[in-house]
């Protein structure tokens, strides 16, 4: 469980997040949605400590995370897996070495065991026979999937995914969504996903928070979203004709 209490962040005087409070449950998929530039990535980076918050508190399973030094955060690090919006694969390493990287860092497994784990993770993201390729030889969607494999390799307890299925075709996108859902439930992970993919919202969202103008504008479940009459949220989510249809069919009004 990750708890946010009044998180604020500004960059050179420009307020990006102001007073965001919420709670992300273990074993559930927590979605953060919001328009481009609404601060989803910044919020996620604040949560993992890549960006220091200006104000507020962050707790990981009741343990204080904000305000700690790098050394004090060390025990949390092994438990955190993150998929960056751009993939952030290491260019100089092969796919296999990329996925193995956190294993080298955190475990003392033998090389065979590590290889096995790597292959297992790559298989889960539907990638095979790419072990020896370098990231520059992969398509955008393949990079994303390698990034996901790297994030789940060390069996994290907290999984952060910044738009894991942007740039994927609808079918692979569903595979990734389902994978995230499976491992979240199987290993009881606290998972937080930034997305603006409507399909993911409706398919895997257990809890959804909507960022707008730097604030947590709305929070609720998938059912709530279909019923809500929050104007900004409706404008954002049900912008397309298709989505409007969904709302008309399953939601109210």
């Amino acid at each position: 469980m990750i708890e946010l209490r009044n998180i604020s962040k500004s960059f050179s005087g420009r307020m990006i997040l102001s007073g965001v409070s919420t709670c992300f449950e273990k074993g559930h998929i927590n979605l953060v949605i919001g328009g481009s530039g609404s601060g989803k990535t910044v919020l996620m980076k604040c949560m993992v400590g890549l960006v220091e918050i200006d104000d507020g508190e962050l707790l990981y399973d009741k343990k204080m995370f904000s305000g700690l030094s790098r050394a004090e955060r060390k025990p949390f690090r092994q438990e955190i897996g993150m998929v960056f919006q751009g993939g952030a694969l290491f260019d100089s390493l092969t796919v296999e070495q990329n996925v193995m990287f956190p294993l080298n860092m955190f475990t003392d497994l033998s090389i065979q065991d590590k290889r096995e784990r790597v292959n297992f993770c790559l298989k889960r993201v539907n990638l095979e026979k790419v072990n020896q390729l370098s990231p520059s030889e992969l398509s955008g969607g393949m990079k994303k999937r390698v990034a996901i494999a790297r994030a789940i390799a060390p069996n994290p307890s907290y999984l952060f995914c910044d738009e894991p299925n942007s740039g994927l075709d609808p079918k692979t996108s569903i595979v990734i969504d389902n994978l995230i859902k499976e491992i979240t439930e199987e290993f009881n992970i606290t998972t937080i996903v930034n997305t603006h993919d409507m399909n993911s919202v409706l398919e895997i969202g257990d809890k959804i928070i909507f960022l707008h103008q730097g604030k947590k504008w709305w929070e609720g479940t998938v059912n709530d979203i279909l019923q809500t009459d929050n104007q900004e949220l409706n404008d954002f989510i049900f912008a397309s004709k298709l989505a409007k249809g969904v709302k008309q069919k399953y939601g109210k009004n």
């Binding site: 890549l50 790098r70 960056f84 952030a88």
Partner: peptide, 21 residues
């Protein structure tokens, strides 16, 4: 340019997140 590229493509963040200096 090697380290700079790693910075702007968030590879350094990916290293930091694992608790590596």
């Amino acid at each position: 340019s090697e380290i700079g590229t790693m910075r702007v493509t968030e590879q350094i963040d990916a290293i930091e997140i694992m608790g590596i200096n």
